[in-house]
Simulated assay, not measured.
Amino acid sequence: MRCPFCAHDETQVKDSRPAEDNASIRRRRQCGKCGARFTTFERVQLREVMIVKSGVNGEPGRREAFDRGKLEQSVSLACRKRGVSQEQIDQLVSGIQRQVETAGEAEVPSSRLGELVMDGLRQVDSVAYIRFASVYRDFSEARDFEEFASTVQEAARSEDGD
């Protein structure tokens, strides 16, 4: 592992412990050259999955490797100032990552990934769900928000009535 401070190639693991409900390993490392300490996380990757972005006129777009960091960043942004804990975000992102990796497909459309995020956020926080949907579904007017929010409210009422 390369040192993020001096780029030296030799670092030593000082401490390892499980993190995120045993979904990853947290490692404390020290650089052999500059002595700096830093933390890394190691996760199981079941397979390399490519995300197929939306293209123009229904054509498939560019492909890029699934990036857990990008997924976590977009979920965190939707949940900002909503009282959703980092642990809840980590669990949601880990669950989505597991679904993507175990689906058995080498390529997953970005629309499928967006739907998985929306399904997860719907269970966690309705405002975060609407925030994510506004970007994902490209709301352009206040009316788009109103219509979507009313469907969320109707769904919540029907769940409470069951």
Rank of each mutant, 00 (worst) to 15 (best):
I51N: 02
A19F: 15
V124L: 15
R157W: 07
S126T: 13
M50R: 05
S16C: 12
V44A: 11
R29Y: 11
V49H: 05
C31R: 01
V52F: 09
L77D: 11
E42L: 11
I96N: 07
R63W: 07
Y136K: 03
I130H: 02
F132K: 02
D125Q: 08
V108M: 10
H8K: 13
D67N: 08
S150D: 15
D67A: 08
R122F: 03
D15N: 12
E101L: 08
G83W: 09
G35R: 00
S16T: 12
E159F: 08
P109N: 05
G161W: 12
M118T: 01
V135G: 01
C31N: 02
G55I: 04
V93K: 07
R98S: 10
Q12I: 10
A133Q: 00
V75E: 01
V75N: 02
G58Y: 04
C34V: 00
R26E: 14
F5K: 09
Q123S: 15
V117W: 07
D162P: 13
E107T: 03
D119N: 15
C34Y: 12
F38V: 07
G69W: 14
Q99P: 00
G55C: 10
C3W: 04
E10I: 11
N22E: 14
L121A: 03
M1P: 05
V135D: 00
T151D: 13
A65K: 12
G120A: 08
T40F: 11
Q30I: 09
E10T: 07
F38H: 12
S150W: 06
V56R: 14
S76H: 07
E101A: 05
R2H: 10
T102Y: 06
R2D: 11
E10Q: 13
R28C: 00
R157H: 08
R122A: 13
V152I: 12
G58W: 04
G61D: 06
F66L: 08
E87I: 08
G114F: 03
S74Q: 12
R137M: 10
D119R: 02
T11Y: 09
D90L: 05
E154P: 00
S16I: 03
F66W: 01
V135L: 01
L113Y: 00
A106C: 02
E10R: 12
Q45V: 15
L121P: 09
L113R: 00
D125W: 08
